[in-house]
C-alpha cells in the first residue's frame, strides 16, 4: 500500500533566509518529511531558517525531536533557527516538554525574519 506523508511543505527564500511552511499534522508518520525538508534547507547554509507553523494544527514529540535536531545543526552552523505562528495547542506541547525557552519563537513571519 502506498503511504502518503500527509504533510506538504512550502519553501520560500527571502534575502538569504529560507522559510519553510509545513501544512498538516506533524506526527510520527509525517515528521520524516519535515526532517528531510529542514535538512535540505540547512544544507544550503542559510543565515536564518524560519519554520512557519501557521498551518500546523498538531505536533507530537517526533516533531519536537525534529526541531531540536534542527536547532543543534543551526547552532553548529552559527545560523539562526526561528519558529513562528504557533497555535496555542502547538505551543502547549512545547511548554509541556519545557522547550519553549530553547527555541526563538515569534508571532509572525515578519518578526521571525529579524527576531
Amino acid at each position: 500500500m502506498a503511504e502518503r506523508t500527509g504533510l506538504a511543505i512550502g519553501r520560500e527564500e527571502r534575502d538569504g533566509v529560507i522559510i519553510l511552511t509545513p501544512e498538516g499534522d506533524v506526527d510520527m508518520s509525517c515528521s520524516p518529511a519535515l526532517r528531510e525538508a529542514i535538512r535540505r534547507a540547512q544544507d544550503a547554509r542559510p543565515k536564518r531558517l524560519v519554520v512557519d507553523l501557521s498551518q500546523v494544527d498538531y505536533m507530537d514529540s517526533s516533531g519536537l525531536a525534529t526541531l531540536v535536531e534542527a536547532m543543534k545543526v543551526a547552532r553548529g552552523q552559527k545560523a539562526a533557527l526561528v519558529l513562528c505562528n504557533m497555535s496555542a495547542k502547538v505551543r502547549a506541547i512545547f511548554e509541556i516538554a519545557r522547550l519553549h525557552h530553547y527555541f526563538t519563537i515569534t508571532g509572525t513571519v515578519e518578526d521571525a525574519l529579524v527576531g
Binding site: 503511504e3 502518503r4 500527509g6 499534522d25 506526527d27 510520527m28 508518520s29 498538531y58 507530537d60
Partner: peptide, 9 residues
C-alpha cells in the same frame, strides 16, 4: 502503522 495515528487521535 503510524499512518493510523491521526485516526486514533
Amino acid at each position: 502503522n503510524p499512518v493510523y495515528l491521526s485516526g486514533a487521535r
